[in-house]
Every structure is written in C-alpha cells, then in structure tokens.
Write a protein that binds this DNA or RNA. Structure first.
Lengths: 214, 214
DNA sequence: AAGATAACTGACTCGCGAGTCAGTTAGGAG
DNA sequence: CTCCTAACTGACTCGCGAGTCAGTTATCTT
C-alpha cells in the first residue's frame, strides 16, 4: 500500500515558458467557453498549475484575457494588412485581403473563436467592435479612393452608402468565417471563391462595372 | 425632525402588470449590459421592486431572461415570415423580408440589442445561433427553389455554395442593422436601399440575371 | 369592521470565483 | 555541499450575486 508511484514531480520551467503555457491554456479555455464562463481555476487546471502562479504572470483575469486579445487582434490586423499590401488592383486587393483573413481563421482557429466568443458583452465588446470598425473603415477608405463619384443607391449620401456597404461586407465575411469554422472540411479556396463571388459583385455595382479595375 | 414626508406609498399592482413591468426593466438591463453583467438586483432596482418579488414571477434569472428571448425571437420570426408571405416574386420577397426585419430593429430597439448582446456566450448563444441559422436556411431554401441548377462559383458544390451565400447574406444584414442602431438618424428606406443593393446583386449573380424574376 | 388573500419586503444563507499570502522546494551559482 | 533565488503551492479571505423565508401591509370581499 505504500507503493506510491509518486507521479511526475512536475518540472519547473523558466518564467517565459510558463507564461506561454498559461496563455495557451487560457486561449483554450476562453475559446471554449467565453470570458464569463471561464474561471481562473479552469485555466489553472488546464495549464497544470496552481491558480496562484497565474498571478505571478498576470495581475488579473482581465489582464490575462487582454493579453490574448491584443496579441491576436494585432496578428490578424498585421496579416491582413500585409496581404493587402501585395496587391495593387481593386479586385486583387480584395482577394488578397480575404485570403489573409481566411488564412488567419484557419491557422488560429482557437484565437478566432475566442474573438468571436467575446464579441458581445461589456467592454470586451469594445475590442472586437474596434477591430470590426477598423476593417470597415479601411474598406470604406479603399472604396472612396477607387469608386466613381456617383451615388450607388438613389437618395443616399455617398459617404454613408460606402460606410454601410463596408459594414455589410465585414459582416458577411465574418459570418462566413464562422460558418466555415463549423465546416472545416470545405477547403479554403472554395470559401474564398464564394466570398469573392458575393462581395466583389456587390462592390462592383458601386462602380457600375468599370472604374474599379484601373 | 419628526416631519417624515413618508414618500409615495408605492401602488400595488395586479400580478400581470407587475410581471410586465419586471420584464420591461429586465429588457432594459439586459439590453444595456448583457446577461452576465446584469444582476437581478439591477433589474429589481430598475423595476422599483424588491428582488424577492421577481422570484414571485420567475423561478430564476435564466427563466426571466429566457422569457424575454423567446418573446422577441418569436416576434421577429413572425414579423419577417408575415412580411415575406405578402410578396411572391423573388426580389419583392427579399425586399419585404428585409423591410420586416428592419422594422423590427427600429420598433424594438432594446429587444434587438438584447439579442445581439447575448449572441456569443455559453448556451445563450444557441438561441441566437438557431435564429440566425433558421434565417439562413429559409433563404437557402428560397434560393434552391428559384435558382437554376448551374453552380454559381467554379468548383463548389451547389448546395454548399447556397448555404454559404445565405450565411453571408444574414451576416451582412445583421451587421448593417447593428450599424444602423448607432446611426438612427439615417432613415429606414435608405438602409433598406443599401441592403437591397448589396444583397440582391449578390443573389442575382446566382441566377445569372434571369430565372429569379419568374 | 373583520378577515382573507395576494402583493410585497428586509434580512438572511450559501456557494463560487477573484485575488492573496505564508510558506515549500527545485535547481543553479559559488 | 550550501545558499539563494525564483518557481511554485495550499489554504486562506472576501465580496458579490442567486436564491429563500418569515413576516408586513394593501386592497378586495362580505
């Protein structure tokens, strides 16, 4: 009875590694359940660590969550920005941006889920909303630059119309990304094709079929 | 000092009215802060009532929240369904549906906010996701019925493509509705015009410009 | 006016989760 | 081998919020 198997006397890790481990565990947890449904106890357990240790690396639950949020929002933004920078033409640029975005969703599945899971509540919403809005604004800016001065829909202010169009575009793509997240068997190119099919046509209309490709 | 002004001895109300009052207060609170950020104490205060009384009408916080959710999800669904039923043609039907939807968002601003605020977390997400999916499925069904059998985007399964298209459509409209919620000065017809401009063109592409109007 | 009933409340319990602290121990520097 | 630091933990506190209960009072009925 005294044959204690004395299971693995847990290795100590350097602060940086441990921090990374905690972040990974937290990402898992938050992606699975959202901010409020996740306790630091959960995170600690997933990380195989005591709750107290978490406080050696992060001063509060919010800070931990915020660190993740910032990391991935930044990565997402950078990815898309970089992708966009490689293409000059209107349609190609849109395609490149979408490709970058979808690549992120594919590569950082958990991160994407975490972003979406925290899109609605409290001041957490602010981060996501800002991201969304930044995307819409960027798109709107491109449209303003490229589109002809005619109003796309009768009786609507040009700037307003562009803003709304951009908002819809973002919404459509985000929605599609979420759908894709639950249909991972569908290859990325197909999703991209559909997204382009939907978005580009809508955008093209803005320029009445010309002006955008030059 | 003994001049007690004995402020308004709060009127008693019949159970039904009180219940309604509590529901209204809860709607306010949940719309403003989301489920988790709202305590029953908040709701009670807003309703001008003790917390205990709430439990005379609802057995738990979830039930209270659920009652609101069900009410408005149902109303929204019914509104759109009714609107759709009045139009037979493809484009007119889409316009009618959108009009009904935007009408709901305009009329039940708080309810809409509450729905959106609870779209992401835990099993609360299920309700909203189901609603979303129901909408997408309905749209997809219409498309399947009306669209020609050609594949809309090269190399993508027809059914899959339609599903994705519908998902994007829903996302775009929801996104636009949220934007509108923060730009209430923009009249409904303009929002509708933009939504149609975006959505219909994308859809028309599916049928290559014909087949939908007959 | 008396009694009954249903609206209503203050003051409770109780569990959960964020955050803390007084230590214990691994493992590297000398 | 011996310190010394930095990783690490168990066992706490403490406030908050859901849910409860014993009682109080308004209003309707007779």
């Amino acid at each position: 009875m005294s044959s204690v198997t004395h299971d693995v006397p847990r290795r100590r890790m350097a602060a940086v590694e441990r921090r990374a481990g905690i972040l990974a565990a937290a990402l898992d947890a938050f992606a699975a359940g959202g901010y409020h449904e996740t306790s630091l106890g959960d995170v600690a357990e997933r990380a195989g660590v005591s709750k107290a240790l978490i406080y050696e690396h992060f001063s509060s639950k919010r800070e931990l969550h915020g660190a993740l949020l910032e990391t991935y929002v930044h990565e997402l933004l950078a990815t898309v920005a970089e992708a966009i920078a490689t293409a000059e033409q209107g349609e190609q640029r849109l395609r490149a941006g979408l490709e970058g975005f979808l690549g992120f969703v594919e590569r950082r599945r958990d991160a994407w889920r975490m972003l979406v899971r925290n899109a609605a509540e409290g001041d957490l919403a602010a981060s996501f909303e800002r991201l969304r809005h930044e995307a819409a604004a960027a798109i709107a800016a491109l449209m303003v630059a490229d589109a002809p001065p005619e109003s796309p829909a009768a009786g609507v202010e040009r700037e307003l119309a562009i803003e709304m169009l951009a908002e819809q575009l973002v919404g459509a793509v985000v929605s599609l990304a979420n759908w894709w997240d639950e249909h991972r068997d569908v290859p990325r190119e197909q999703v991209l094709a559909i997204a382009m099919d939907f978005a580009w046509v809508g955008l093209e209309r803005l320029g009445e079929g010309e002006a955008w490709n030059a």
